[in-house]
Design a protein around this nucleic acid. Sequence first.
RNA 1: GGAGACAUAGCUCAGCCGGUUAGAGCGUUCGCCUCACACGCGAGAGGUCGUGGGUUCGAUCCCCGCUGUCUCCACCA
Length: 874
Amino acid sequence: MIKELPKVYEPSESEDRIYKFWLDNGLFNAEPSPDKKPYSIVIPPPNVTGQLHMGHAFDDTLQDVLIRTKRMQGYSTLWMPGTDHAGIATQIKVEAELRKEGLTRYDLGREEFLKRVWAWKEKFGSRIITQLYKLGASCDWRRLRFTMDEGLSKAVRETFVSLYEKGLIYKGNRIINWCPHCETALSDAEVEYSEQAGKLWYIKYQIEGSDDFLEIATTRPETMMGDTGIAVNPNDERYRHLIGKKAILPLMNRPIPIFADDYVEMDFGTGCVKVTPCHDPNDFDMGKRHDLEFILVIDGNGKINKNGGKYCGLDRLEARKQVIEDLDKLGLLTKTEDYSHNVGTCYRCGTNVEPMTSSQWFVKMEPLAKEDLAAVRRGDIKFIPERFTKTYTNWMENVHDWCISRQLWWGHRIPAWYCKDCGHITVSREDPDKCEKCGSANIKQDEDVLDTWFSSALWPFSTMGWPEKTRELEYYYPTNVLVTGYDIIFFWVARMICFGLEQMKERPFKEVFLHGIVRDSQGRKMSKSLGNGIDPIEVIEKYGADALRFTLITGNSPGNDTRFYYERVEANRNFCNKIWNASRFVMMNLTVEDFTLPEKLSLEDKWILTLYNRLVREVTENIEKYELGVAADKLYSFIWDKYCDWYIELCKTRLLDGNDKEGSECAQRVLGHVLCGTLKLLHPFMPFITENIWQALPHKGVSIMVSEWEKPDERYEFPSAVAEMEQIMEAVRVVRNRRSEMNVPPSKRAALTIVTKSPELFAGAEPFLKRLASASSVTVADKTPENADSMVSCATDAAHIFMPLSELVDLEKEKERIKGEIAKSEKFAASIEAKLSNENFVSRAPEAVVSAEREKLEKTKALIEKLRHSLEIL
RNA sequence: GGAGACAUAGCUCAGCCGGUUAGAGCGUUCGCCUCACACGCGAGAGGUCGUGGGUUCGAUCCCCGCUGUCUCCACCA
C-alpha cells in the first residue's frame, strides 16, 4: 500500500504508464462472447494523415465514456477504431508536397503518385492513433481498420457492383458541382455556400429580324457563350409577344430561342433569364424541358474552352472581365448593380465551385431514401437530441442523386471497364480481361475513384469483415450508438443508414448521439486560418487527459456547441488534485485490509451512504440517457461538496482521536467503500487518475476498468439519518456564519449552549461542532441559559445556539440583524401559507407536494420563534 | 424562401420533458498557512430566468405572438 504520495497530483508521471498497463493486459480487447450482451461503437474514422484536434478529443471522449461504462456493466464491448483515406484532403496534401519539388501528379503518373501517397500514409498514419492513446481511448487496437485496406476495399467493390446490378448506380451526363482547383466533381453535400459580393449586369439582346431589344440581367456573363435560350414567365405581358421568336446572342452572334417557363420570376431583374444549360442547375432543367442545345464553355481547370470563341483559354474570371468590357464597347451593357448572392465553394479548398454538365457516376437516391425515412419514422434509429430527426428527414425527403465519382487518383478506383469496340460498360467484382458483351479485349478501366464518403458509408459493417460472414458481424452488428457531430449528418450518418439498410438489411446503429462543435473562448470555430485551434495534446501534457476529458464532458448538453476555456481545464485539474488528496488522506489513515461495511454504522456513515446510493442510481441513469454532463456534474459535487467538505471532516473525529479503534475502523471502511465506488463511477470520465488511485487501494482484480459497475444497495438507505445529519450540518453552518460575520478567527473557540428538542442528537454532535464550528465545549439544554442576554445567538429550525462572544458585537446592530432575518423568514412563511390556504392547491396538488410545503412552513415557524426569542433576550 | 436552436449571476454555461428560498465553474468581497489538499478551507455579495399573452392550483420549464443572436437546408438568373 502506497502511503507516501506526493501532495500534488502529477498526471504526466503516470498516464502513459497506465495506458500501457491497459494495453499490456489486453483490457480493450473485444471478443464475441455468448454469455455476455454485445455493445459496440465504431469510431468516426479520422483522416489517416491528420492530427488530433479538439473536435476529435470531444467526440472520442464521449465514446470512451460510453464504452467504459458498458464494459464495467458487463457487456462485451467493442470500440472499433480506424482511419479514413480522406480522398481529396490527403491528395491535396501530397500534391502540395510535390509542388515544393516543382512537380505535379501528372509528372509522376498515376502509379508513382500513388506510391507517394502510400508513403505519406505510412509516415503519418500512426500519428493520430498514438494521440488517441494519450486521450485514454479504449479502442480494440488489434482491430484497427483503414478504408483502403484490402477487406474494406472489397466491401466497397461489392457494394458498387451490387448497386449497379440493381440499377441503383448509373452513369449519366448531368449537371454536377465541379471544383476547378481540385479538378474533380463534388457531391451536393461537399459544396458550402457563402455570401459573396457580386454584380448584376444588364445586357441588351437584339431580337432577330427586328430592331427591338430585350434586356437580361446576369451575375455570370462569362457563361453567356454557352447560352442557348432566353426564358420569360408565361404570364409576363411584357414579353408575351416575343415567345417563339429568337434573340441574337451578343458576342457570339448566334440566334437563340425565346421561350416561356414558370421557373422565371417576373419581378427579378428584367424578367428575362439567359439560359446556360451546361452551367446552371436550373438552366439544365429548362434545357431538358425545352429541348435546348447544350454547350459546355468552361473546362475542368476553370478556363474557357474552344466553344467560347475568342475567350478560349481565358480563366473564367478573366473571361468575365473581357466579356463585360466587350459588351460595354458594343453599347450592349446597360446597367451594373451591386448584388450580393450565395456562391457555392469547395468544402476542401474553398474555391468557387463551377456547375457544369459532366459524365459521372451517381447513386439513385429516391428508392433508397424511402427505406431510410421509414426506418427512422419507425423508431429503429433514434436521434439524440431528438430535434435532429427533423434535420435528417427534411434532407432525406429532398435528397438528389449522389454523385460518387471523383477525378482523383487517391481512392477506390471505380470497377467499370469501357469497351473500345462496342462501347459497353463492364462492371464486375473481379477485374475483367474482356468486354462482357462483345468479348473484345480492348477494354479500359474508368480512371476515376469513388467519393471518400462512399467507403465511409460502409464503415459499421466493412470494419467487421463484410462481405464475409464473420463472428463480429453476427455478434456486434448493428452497433449500439453512433457518436458524432451534427455537422456530418448528411455526409456520413445519412449515408451509413442508407447503405446499412440496403446491404445488410439492418440499421447500422440503434441510436445517433450528436454533439456540437468545440469553439474557442470567443465562440469562433477553431480553424487553421484563424490560428485559434488548441492542440489537445498540449492540454493533456500540461493538465492531464482527465482534466481535458472532464472539461469537454461538462458544461454542455447534447447537440449544443461548447466553448473551450483554459480556466475550466484548470478547475478540472484542481478537481483531480482534490480527488488525489482525498484518497491520500484515506490511505494515510488506513489500517484495515478491506472495505466491507460493518453492521454498526454512525449517523454520518448512514448519511454519506444514503447520498452515495442516490449518486449511483442517478449517475447510471444519466449515462444511460446520454446526459453525460449532468452525470459528471453530480460526481463533481458529490466528491467535493459531500465527501471531502463534510464526510472526511466528520470522520476525523473517529480517525484521529486515537482511543476509538472500532470507530476508526468503521470510518475507514465507509471512507474506503464510498471512495472505491465513486472512483468506479468516475472512471469512464477520468480513467487515468481513477486507475492510479484504485491500484493503490486494497482491491481485487487487475484493473478498475474491468471492475464491476456499482449498483444501488437498498440496505444502505437511511432517510431519517440524512434528516438528522442535515440538522447538525445546519447548526454548524449557522455558527460558522455568525462567527464569520463577527470576524472571529477559527483559533478563538467558544463554548456553545444549544437549546433543542433533540438533545441526544446534538449531544452526540459535540465532536463535530468542536471540529467544524470552533466550539470549545457543547452544552445541551432544554431552556434558554441564564446569562443569555450577554450572549450571541443563532438559530436553525431545530436548534437555538448561544455563544459568549457578545463583547464582539454591537447590540443595536445585532438587533437589526435579527429583525432582518425574522422579516425574511416571515415573508417566506407567508408565501407558503398563501399556497396552503388555497383550496385548489391543497386539493389538486399531489399529496407529497402539499405535505412538503407544510413541513417547510413548520420549520420556518420554528426558526422564527427562536429568532423572536433571541430578540426578546437582548 | 423553409427548418431549427439559443436568450438564466460580471463572463461561460447547467437546470435531468411544471412544485427548488433558481445552481456550477471562473471572476469578485471578507476571514483563515484548521494535523489530505493554498490546484486549499470557511463565509458572503451578485439573477424582474429576453418580452407580451395563454394553459394550470402552480410556469425558468408547456403553448402562441414579438424582439434579438446563431445554425442548417434551398437557392431568384
